[in-house]
């Protein structure tokens, strides 16, 4: 058997990194939870989790020099997975924190669900529909995932939209390009479908 893939989970004091780490271990990764940009760049693949406010998260990334490390990891072709706010910060900005600049790896902005008709946050299990086939999403079309969020991304490039979910209208639930994939839901809380996604990510990373 091939050596275990070394996955760096970016630790920037932003939420439930423990669950992400456990799920990756469960599917066979060698995981390092690290606050060190050097360690991120030394890994085979990178996972960027995130819970909390957009502005708070991008500030914490910058304070630790992780914004540069994430961008460099992406540019160098490292398989990269963003989760929840870890997806949102990859875009250019968010309605949640108008003054805060995102990493801008993906073009487009993050917007809020319309309140009034809908309960916000969008919290619970909802169905994913694939827009485009992708190795990380193999076998997951129509599966349910667990969401907790009040904002969602609007990709500027139509080609970056990989999957969507219906909550008062379809919104972007998975975005990505090249070696980067990002999901708005929490695979680490989505039971078998979520573990499958992490496993797909490892297999995809192993091949690249």
């Amino acid at each position: 058997m091939a050596e275990k893939l070394k996955v760096a989970v970016v630790d920037y004091d932003a939420g439930n990194t423990l669950s992400v780490t456990r799920a990756l271990k469960k599917v066979g990764a060698q995981v390092e939870l690290t606050p060190d940009p050097e360690r991120v760049l030394a890994a085979d693949a990178v996972v960027l989790p995130g819970v909390g406010a957009f502005g708070d998260c991008v500030n914490k990334l910058r304070e630790r020099g992780m914004d540069g490390a994430c961008r460099e990891a992406y540019v160098s072709g490292k398989p990269f997975l963003g989760v929840c706010v870890g997806l949102q910060v990859l875009f250019e900005g968010s309605e949640e924190s108008p003054g805060a600049e995102g990493l801008g790896i993906l073009s487009g902005r993050v917007v809020r669900f319309k309140t009034g008709v809908l309960k916000v946050p969008h919290m619970g299990w909802n169905r994913l529909g694939l827009v485009r086939e992708h190795p990380v999403l193999a076998g997951l079309d129509g599966e349910f995932f667990y969401y907790v969020h009040s904002y969602y991304p609007k990709p500027g490039e139509p080609g970056d939209l990989l999957g969507q979910t219906d909550y008062g209208g379809l919104f972007c639930a998975v975005a990505g390009r090249e070696n980067l994939v990002a999901v708005q839901f929490h695979p680490e809380k989505s039971s078998r479908a979520g573990l499958r996604l992490y496993k797909n990510f490892l297999e995809w990373a192993q091949k690249s």
Binding site: H122, M123, G124, W125, N126, R127, F144, D166, Y167, G168
Partner: peptide, 8 residues
């Protein structure tokens, strides 16, 4: 379709 009813 929207959110599923949860069984806990």
């Amino acid at each position: 379709m929207g959110l599923c009813i949860r069984i806990i």
